[in-house]
Amino acid sequence: MTTRDLVLIALFAAITAVLGLFPALTLPITGVPVTAQTLGVMLAGSILGARRGGLALVVFLVLVAVGLPLLAGGRGGAAVFSGVTAGFLFSWPVAAFVIGWLTEKAWDRYALIHAVSINVFGGILIVYAGGIAWMVAVAGIPLDKALYGSLPFIPGDALKVIAAATAAVALKRYQQHPLGRTA
């Protein structure tokens, strides 16, 4: 890891924290907050690649765990990792890593269509798989109920996918994308 890698990891962990400053919308029925923070997951993966992107989210979650109030709504501390929805949080580094890995694989022909598909897969499918698996396995919620309860989040996540994908592709076009420099 070069100094530049370390700085990029820190700055994207910080971006994810800054995205948490935007007010979270709490859905009336499920009570789960919709936040801009998974946009940080998608950006870290799409811009930094697998290793750095995944580590940025690990760093972010460790800082949350030791008690910095970095989650949307100023929440933090080890308590958020013992709740019913903790699986969503645990999936973030994995999602960022997978998005990054696929972005690196697709790099030579990387365009909006690839960016969108990759972020749908990593930023939506993997995050929900982690979150729902946790609800079913740890919290004992039946699978269909967990699935049904997660549906209202999909439209917001789709918007985040488009935003992250457009930004990543724009960076490649302006030759500002870090993956373009190392390749």
Partner: peptide, 21 residues
């Protein structure tokens, strides 16, 4: 896993949150 690099990354994240905000 280099402990010095690790703590530098954590420190920088805390340092740059208000800057990026």
């Amino acid at each position: 896993l280099n402990p010095e690099k690790t703590s530098l990354v954590f420190a920088m994240t805390i340092r740059f949150i208000p800057v990026l905000a």
